[in-house]
Amino acid sequence: MYLRPRNLSELFEMWHAHPEAVPVAGGSRVLPLGPQRPAVLLDLAIAALQTIEKEAQFLTFGPMVSVDRLAAVLASLPGLHAVAQAALGFVPVQVRKQATLGGNLLIGGSLAPALAAVGAIAIIKNHQEIQELPIQSVVPVQPGRLRLPAQTLLVAVRLPLEPSMVSYYAALRRTPVGPAVAAVAVAVVGSGLRLAVGGATPQLQMMQGDLADRAAMDRWLQDLPVTGDPRASAAYRQAMLALLLERALDALPTASRQSA
């Protein structure tokens, strides 16, 4: 069955009537023929989920905004540089155009660490209520399903417009368009720092600390549950995380100059 709601309230009505329905965003998880293809699909291509809203202190994106559009909008906002970099790091460009913000989070794509570092908020909704959560709490443990209660949808991702924030994202891949084997995102406001790591650990990892306390960051990196798989060993990933952090911290002054 293919459910094609016209607006959010219709969407939740349909979902209520067909609780087994699986939402379709960019399509990469559900459309390929095979045993993973769900019997009932719920199309998220509705206007309300594709909006970009700018307020004084926030920039809010619908989950159906394409990764490419996200990168374009953020290109002029130095504080959110890390998110733009992570979006552009989702290659190739044609894939980026079809990939959605929500889908990227769902498949464990490049955006999660950058969004977590800049302090993005996930806005989730079921047919009754709206809730706001830090983005890292909805990012999946295993790619394929966001951590949301049943029949609850990620309806927006809100990014802070913090004039004094600078951020940077760096990643490393084994093959040209394969997934990152290590990714690091840092965001700094004053001396406060948020550091998030992706690719190298089964789950998104994040710490908050002091920009001046490099030793604490190194300790945190060293204690991370970094895993090895055929793409790269744990030892290599651990070393690359340290290197990427180094590069990100070095690049921060440049990022802040851009913001000035």
Partner: peptide
Amino acid sequence: LASLSVADYGTPRATD
């Protein structure tokens, strides 16, 4: 097989 994805496998692209 650890991955069945074409993107993961690493066939060179025009950019490589």
